[in-house]
């Protein structure tokens, strides 16, 4: 079975991550948005407690806990296969992958996952800082923390399958990466990245809760910060896995149809 190659691929991917470590650190540092939003919200909350639309009170410390968790989750669930696939389709190097007895999407997924240890290591100082200084912002329910890794995996899987689907679109159209831009614009607004979803007015929150974006970020973050309890979390996790399945099927379908159109360039 070709899956035997996965451990070796993970090892190669990890070596690659170590080789490009400075580049990766710069990428991590580019995630400044949660920190800016943290400065903004704490400057507001320092003037007096802020109340969300659901009535929950947010102090300055609550915002610090929330946005640092956002930073951590964003790092860990990142995927970037759309750019890799687009690049390889356009310059023809995808041909080499197609010759191998392993589905290219599995290869992209493993090389993505191999960055995980190093990315976790980079976010570790932030995580320690949260635990030491803002422990009261974190959930104390151990069942929530059991559910947490599942939501992280689900969030990464959604990200990866969207990337794979958009990557497969580059078999059909040159400018497929623009779709990724559109995804990000929606992600910024509807995932709790800029604004905790609790602060949205009722109608906007209903929309946000139906869309896939909250499952990529808000769900794990809200589990960490006890905004979502274990009981509330269970059905949400099922919904998240539903999105994972749907997007996975979409990505595979697009790939299967698209790859027949592939023509390698060059020699």
């Amino acid at each position: 079975m070709s899956l035997r190659a996965v451990p070796a691929l993970l090892k190669v991917g990890f070596a690659e991550a170590v080789a490009y470590r400075t580049e990766m650190v710069v990428w991590v540092l580019s995630t400044t948005m949660p920190l800016v939003m943290m400065l903004l919200w704490t400057s507001i909350a320092d003037e007096g407690t802020v109340r969300g639309q659901t009535g929950a009170e947010w102090s300055s410390a609550t915002f610090v806990g929330y946005f640092l968790c956002v930073f951590i989750v964003r790092q860990v669930v990142a995927a970037w296969a759309a750019w890799e696939i687009n690049f390889e389709v356009r310059n023809g190097s995808l041909a080499l992958r197609l010759l191998r007895p392993l589905h290219p999407l599995i290869a992209f997924a493993t090389s993505n996952l191999a960055y995980l240890p190093l990315r976790t290591l980079v976010t570790l100082p932030v995580a320690i800082f949260v635990v030491v200084t803002h422990r009261e912002a974190l959930s104390t329910d151990w069942r929530a923390w059991l559910l947490f890794p599942v939501t992280i995996f689900g969030a990464w899987a959604i990200n990866f399958f969207v990337n794979a689907a958009v990557g497969a679109l580059s078999f059909f159209a040159d400018s497929s990466l623009r779709v990724m831009d559109a995804w990000f614009a929606f992600f910024f607004v509807f995932s709790g990245y800029l604004v905790p979803l609790e602060f949205f007015p009722e109608w906007l929150r209903t929309i946000a809760e139906a869309l896939p974006f909250r499952f990529v970020l808000a769900l794990p973050v809200e589990l960490m910060t006890a905004r979502v309890t274990f009981e509330q979390g269970l059905p949400l996790v099922l919904q998240q896995l539903g999105y994972v399945t749907a997007l996975g099927l979409l990505a595979l379908g697009l790939w299967r149809r698209g790859v027949t159109r592939f023509q390698a360039f060059g020699g």
């Binding site: 400057s43 507001i44 109340r51 969300g52 559109a182 614009a185 910024f188 607004v189 604004v195 602060f199």
Partner: peptide
């Protein structure tokens, strides 16, 4: 179209920060 999305994404947090009875906005 995407440019329009980004502009909306830039303005939307503002409505949230200033919207609602309990939010007083940027000091």
């Amino acid at each position: 179209f995407i440019g329009l999305f980004w502009t909306v994404a830039a303005v939307l947090p503002l409505f949230v920060v200033y919207g609602g009875a309990a939010s007083r906005g940027v000091p």
